[in-house]
Amino acid sequence: MLRTNQLTTPSFLVDLDKMELNIREMAELCKTNGKKLCPMVKTHKSTGVAALQAAHGADNFLVGTLDEAERLQQQGYQELVLAYPVAAAENIARVIDLAKRAHVILSFDGVEAAAEFEAMLLQEQIALEYLIIIDCGLHRFGVQPDIVLTLAQDLSKFSRLKFKGIATHPGHVYGKSTAAEVAAVAKAEIDALEKAADLLSNAGYAVEIVATGSTPTVPFAARSKMITTLRPGNYIFYDAIQVALGVVPPERCSLTVLATVIANPDKNLFIMDAGSKCLGLDKGAHSVSLVNGYGIIKDHPELMVESLSEEVGKIRVNGNTGIKVGDKIEIIPNHACAAANMTSFLTGHRNGICERTIAVDARGGSNMKAHSL
């Protein structure tokens, strides 16, 4: 039996017991509160992980890229939601081709991309459903709740596009630093959706889907009677930023990077063989630093990942340590979604015993046909 400490480094590890617990817990939260679960696939970009989510109650999948959507469809998943608007003829053609093999729901926050879809859908003589994106404070995609009716009316002129509901993403929660601030974001998230849904319903629109998702605010959103669908992503791994927000303790983080200490240039400085191309450079969001350093080194509170080059990292010692050159260490990334995208596979283990390899098979560029000349 191969153990994780026998692997070459750097390696990306997933504690299967922890990941499966995270998946079960979220599925139970949705079931208990009567919500559909639509996990965001960009976190793991793996059809193997998606299979675990489906086995534990995921009703459909939210995707950040067309590659993710196509890979999932190839594995037999038929219920897919595009998180972002899609524009340009080449991209729209991929969506329409996919929609001939799966049930695809679009997302819009304006009429321009919708008009492009309408023209191509008329040629194909098919129709697609869509959600209107609501801005609940992130100020990235979406319209303010009080003008959602105007957009709905503008989109209703397209005969090949069918309104299905509304969605939002409170991503600005990652720019907060306390539990109270997280709760405030969640309240604004819920208020925005409820206001938009009420306006649309009162105007005669059938709002079948009211969807939202961010791992820190999901427990709050689950309590809203109007919200129908939860769309978290990070929960399968969790990470150092989730720990800093108070969402979970470090023990719940399932994704780690295994590295080797390769140099000791100074008494209080070590170098490891994992850098920004493994751990990323995230320290928070929206100019707010939630963490110290670039990850949590497990079982070594005296160590901090001080800085990262592309392939190596500096570890600063604060106090006494028994670490030495040749030792292997595990680092919980600050942002698991970014770290998991740095590799082609994860090594799944239980109690340090390697059990299986999990392909990260839905990354950008995974569809060779779509990108070939």
Rank of each mutant, 00 (worst) to 15 (best):
H300F: 10
T260H: 03
A99I: 08
A89F: 03
Q123N: 15
E306Y: 13
L80H: 01
V247M: 08
S46A: 06
S309T: 13
P145W: 01
N5D: 15
E79C: 02
L131D: 07
N334G: 05
L245F: 04
V95W: 07
G313D: 03
R160Q: 14
I105H: 04
I297E: 11
L13I: 07
R356F: 00
I332P: 07
H44Q: 10
L98D: 07
Y77D: 02
I271P: 09
G171A: 12
A83T: 07
A244P: 08
E25K: 15
M342S: 10
L308I: 03
S156P: 03
M1G: 08
G293S: 07
M272D: 02
L21A: 14
V257M: 05
N5F: 15
N91T: 01
T215P: 03
V207I: 02
Y174S: 08
A188R: 10
L269T: 13
E124G: 06
P232D: 01
V210Y: 04
F141C: 08
Q75V: 10
V148W: 10
V218L: 07
K328P: 05
V288M: 12
N351D: 14
K100T: 12
D361Q: 03
V360T: 02
A340S: 14
L106P: 11
K100D: 11
S201F: 06
A221K: 02
K36C: 10
E311T: 15
A206R: 14
A51C: 07
S366R: 10
L16F: 08
P333R: 05
Y174N: 04
Y130H: 10
V104A: 05
R363A: 08
M1I: 12
G313A: 09
Q125W: 00
I271H: 09
I241D: 01
S107T: 15
R101P: 00
I241G: 00
P216K: 01
I296H: 09
K324C: 02
M19C: 05
P265Y: 04
Q73H: 15
M1F: 07
K225I: 02
E20K: 15
A244N: 10
S177V: 11
D266W: 07
M304L: 14
G34E: 03
C30Y: 04
K18Q: 12
T343D: 02
